[in-house]
Design a protein around this nucleic acid. Structure first.
Lengths: 334, 334
DNA sequence: CTGTTAGCGCATTCAC
DNA sequence: GTGAATGCGCTAACAG
């Protein structure tokens, strides 16, 4: 049973007194050491350290308007797609000496906007990953605070997009070469930009390679949805499937196995995002994305806006490619 | 190309002027409406809404010392163990109208402490999950700010522990019943509390059931480490293995398969944490944990400290149990 | 180079 | 019930 009454951290004034200088000097020792004599800086910081003084971020923020925080909002932390992005954002932000608030919108637009409002007074900018907000709401928020989008394409708002197109096309080519004639696309969330893009890419390429493609709809990007897609795919007579993401691909793998279909023996599966590929057996062929890079780029875009105070209509495309592992082989003869 | 010069949000003064009241009244309308006449509150809030006024979190924090933020630090966001914990923390914090900072320590004690210092001036409390800090450093930090531990047992610091013991014992019993005589434990990080606890539980139970157990060391809890453990396990002549976590179990699965050992045909595998079990094929038997609950409990513990200003030596144990799926069967006869 | 003076936006004593 | 004053801890002109 410990008393917590004395939680007051040492302030700038205490350091100033102990060092026999003014508070401004202490402040400068931490923010503009170049304005002080080396000796003064040394002495002040030494005393600060001894006392255990740490600049108070809140006070600094109130005074400068800069909090040194950014907010990252994702639809679902638990979706394996996001952790690498979260981590990269975190690491990159730290390089710029920024902290990151994390928000989980639960795929819910209202909730997402509530989070944004809640964060807005304590961050200098936002990164919205796979935002579920409407274009209008995104524009509205972007007018209030610097805002960068990941995997969401709104004109005028800085955005970094992972172009699955290239990787998807590769995947279709790969399947065509292996002799597959009928393939399926296991869709992701209908309001997802990535899904629209992937679906379009697969249809386009399938057409040019004269492949038949079945579109299997799904509500959510979950293992369950992938599992549930198996029957429709088999009924259609497809011999290969591309899933919206690795999670669904895993689900499909399980759904197929449950119906006695061997992968890659009888059927080929390709995932997307390449977040699970290396940790499953058999290792999943997948269209790699650039999640970490997206996080890094998004942060630097944001930092750039913060620095220049100007937001440009940038649209950065990160390319993808197919990673061939063991879930894709030649179509079973017969 | 948009100019961002006018980012200044409306302040309490503007509302006061527009409403023809003092700033104190506006402040009260938001924090202590009971002190004002209903009519005044109505009028002030109406005007505030019209102007688009939102109380400035930073200024409020500086004035009151309460920021309404908590920090959550985990060793590795990408480890599937943590996302459910992160999400639960987030959700629970939100219920109390708190925002959460997320920190990723990269399993590095120095980095972890750096994060803590960096956050310390803008949060009211910390939740450290699977902290890599020394007991001494944890105590030091806990003396400065309210601090709750998850899966780390330091006397005097409020902590919530997932007792894998019960589930591990179940797993050993289960394997013993299936006829296994020699089993292996694929260790996790040596400085992990959970690992120590799991290893101890398995040794204890194995002894009482007269099973031989091989301890396979590992540096990190990764797929690779699990994969690399396979040869040693096979050489030892074990017919089953329990892994420190699901990720390593997956790795072991792959490592075994690569050497032509079928699971569950020739060998049984049990994971821990049950985060991957339902999304793999074959579905992994695993010792379930209570990550989400841990997150919830940790937050409420923290809120309790914040409210009462008193920290008690609480030690909450969350139990676990074995979830039997398809990677465990009778020992191959012969 | 360093000290002095003024706020940043808000909550909170006191008075009235 | 409401207003006037004060300070949270710090940075940013402005002097010297």
């Amino acid at each position: 049973m410990v008393d917590l009454t004395n939680l007051g951290a040492p302030t700038i004034s205490q350091v100033a007194k102990a060092a026999g200088v003014s508070r401004a000097t202490v402040s400068r020792a931490f923010t503009r050491p170049d304005m002080l004599s080396a000796e003064t800086v040394r002495r002040v910081t030494a005393i600060a350290k001894k006392i255990g003084y740490v600049p108070n971020h809140t006070a600094r923020a109130l005074s400068t308007g800069r909090h040194g925080n950014v907010a990252l909002v994702v639809p679902d932390v638990a979706n394996p797609f996001f952790p690498p992005l979260i981590r990269a954002t975190q690491v990159e932000a730290e390089k710029h000496d920024f902290c990151v608030f994390l928000g989980n919108s639960d795929e819910n637009p209202e909730h997402e906007e509530k989070l944004v409002s809640r964060f807005s007074t304590q961050v200098e900018g936002f990164i919205l990953a796979s935002s579920r907000l409407s274009d209008a709401r995104i524009r509205f928020q972007a007018a209030r605070r610097p805002l960068v989008l990941v995997n969401r394409d709104v004109k005028g708002i800085p955005r970094v997009l992972m172009d699955s197109g290239a990787g998807i096309a590769e995947a279709v080519d790969h399947l065509a070469r292996l002799g597959h004639k009928r393939i399926a696309y296991i869709s992701g969330p209908s309001n997802s930009w990535s899904n629209a893009q992937r679906r379009a890419a697969i249809q386009r390429r399938a057409k040019s390679r004269a492949l038949q493609v079945l579109l299997v709809p799904a509500q959510m990007a979950s293992f369950q949805s992938g599992y549930a897609a198996a029957p429709a795919i088999l009924d259609y007579g497809a011999t290969a499937a591309v899933a919206f993401d690795d999670l669904m691909a895993q689900g499909a793998l399980a759904g197929l196995a449950a119906r006695g279909v061997a992968v890659p023996g009888d059927f080929s599966v390709v995932g997307c995002d390449d977040v699970l590929g290396a940790i499953t057996y058999p290792p999943l062929s997948s269209v790699s994305n650039a999640c970490s890079e997206a996080g890094r780029v998004a942060v630097s875009l944001l930092m750039d806006i913060l620095k220049t105070r100007v937001v440009r209509d940038v649209r950065i495309i990160l390319s993808t490619s197919l990673v061939i592992r063991n879930t894709t082989t030649k179509v079973a003869s017969g």
